[in-house]
């Protein structure tokens, strides 16, 4: 149907809508709002369930499985690609020159005809709640920390099969030739969190534009919690179709 045809139609008004249809419409709206506003929903429900919610399905909301439940919010429109986060990560975690734990991708997104927007998108391990890398590891060299949900490594157990690298949808892992094991972001658990009581990661501390907000999803006072639960902001995750339930969230704020 063309726009002109639509304009010629009579307005039926809302009086003729049945209460059943109204309810369905409201449920649909609430579902969409829930999907975009609830950080816990992104973290705990699968992509399929989220898609189901978009179609008017039910979203089971449960407690966060970890305490503290570490997360990172990336305010990507603040990123200027200064790469201080990358340098901080390298120096703090002794990352060799041949690898990286985090990097910044440069995107060129079409916004109108012949117009593109340049966006810098920092990426790192998403510390997924359903991590394919953990599932495939034959020796439990990589594992999900039962306390805080960080996907960590025990390098001494790594046999170098690189299946986790092949399984990771985020290209978040590399093989460290120095200790002959896979290396990845652990939210600076070994180098900062464990020693300083779990406050902030090296990359978040180094960022001059507050792009990377590290925090705890179970702590309402945490900046990350507040951002994810801001009702006026849209939150999203990378590659939701892979059903990994990431704990790194993206937003423009």
């Amino acid at each position: 149907m063309k726009v002109k045809d639509l304009e010629n139609l009579n307005n039926e008004g809302v009086d003729s809508l049945s209460s059943k249809e109204r309810r369905r419409f409201l449920q649909f709206g609430l579902s969409i709002t829930g999907v975009f506003l609830g950080g816990s929903i992104f973290s705990l429900t699968s992509a399929l369930k989220a898609q189901g919610a978009l179609r008017g399905g039910n979203i089971p909301v449960t407690d966060f499985p970890y305490s503290p439940h570490y997360t990172m919010v990336i305010r990507q429109n603040h990123c200027i690609d200064c790469e201080r986060c990358l340098e901080a990560c390298r120096s703090t975690n002794s990352v060799p020159a041949h690898g990286y734990r985090t990097t910044i991708l440069e995107r060129s997104v079409p916004i109108a005809q012949d117009q593109r927007e340049r966006i810098f998108m920092p990426i790192l391990c998403n510390h997924c709640n359903n991590p394919p890398c953990v599932r495939v590891c034959p020796t439990q060299a990589t594992y999900k920390d039962e306390t805080n949900g960080i996907v960590r490594m025990k390098p001494e157990k790594c046999i170098g099969c690189k299946t986790c690298m092949a399984a990771c949808p985020y290209n978040a892992r590399y093989f460290n030739e120095e200790n002959r094991a896979i290396d990845k972001c652990d939210f600076c658990y070994d180098t900062k969190l464990k020693e300083s009581g779990g406050k902030i990661t090296a990359c978040a501390a180094a960022c001059p534009a507050n792009v990377r907000i590290f925090g705890d999803l179970t702590d309402p006072e945490s900046d990350a919690y507040k951002l994810i639960h801001s009702p006026d902001k849209v939150v999203w995750v990378l590659r939701p179709e892979t059903d990994t339930l990431p704990n790194v969230f993206y937003m423009n704020a």
Binding site: V136, P138, A141, E156, K157, I159, G160, C161, T163, F175
Partner: peptide, 27 residues
């Protein structure tokens, strides 16, 4: 020979097996 650290296999495939891993089961 495709593994980077095959010497760890004998040890940790037995001491730290991962039953959810298809690679472990397959080998």
């Amino acid at each position: 020979l495709e593994l980077e650290s095959p010497w760890r296999v004998g040890f940790y495939a037995l001491l730290s097996p991962h039953q959810s891993s298809n690679i472990w089961w397959k080998t």
